[in-house]
């Protein structure tokens, strides 16, 4: 599965563009996160790998910016394995091993950002 970040402009928020794309392409999109502000909207969706190009084109045709989403990145030179991030992750991307090494399973990350500002050594980025 690949994650796509869909960014809608103020004008596009009111249209059911995501539903149109799903119906037109016949591909199921799993919505992981949706966020609407007065001036823009963002949806994070999961798309089967083989349909990524089709879906990206279908959104872009409608003027929606669709980009393959980057995930949590860990700077191992900065990380001291404290685990301050661990209790904040809503979907258990962050866990620890028996020797208390912190493990990041980046492919599960939904890029919510909750952990980023909790890192005392600024080792986390999205």
């Amino acid at each position: 599965m690949t994650r796509l970040l869909l960014q809608f402009s103020k004008q596009q928020i009111t249209f059911p563009i995501t539903s149109q794309v799903i119906l037109e392409q016949g591909v199921l999109l799993n919505i992981l996160r949706a966020h609407v502000e007065p001036t823009f909207g963002e949806i994070l969706v999961e798309v089967p790998q083989e349909y990524v190009n089709r879906i990206v084109n279908a959104f872009q045709k409608r003027g929606v910016k669709a980009t393959v989403q980057r995930r949590l990145e860990v700077d191992n030179n900065r990380c001291i394995s404290c685990g301050a991030c661990y209790s904040l992750c809503p979907i258990s991307v962050i866990s620890f091993e028996e020797d208390y090494s912190i493990v990041f399973e980046g492919e599960k990350c939904i890029a919510c950002g909750l952990c980023i500002d909790a890192c005392p050594t600024q080792a986390l980025h999205i």
Partner: peptide, 22 residues
Amino acid sequence: GKITINDREVKVSSLSSLKKAK
């Protein structure tokens, strides 16, 4: 990594590095 607070299990983070302590 987990403790119970008011009958609910919540995640608990160490702020100091247990790995480095060892």
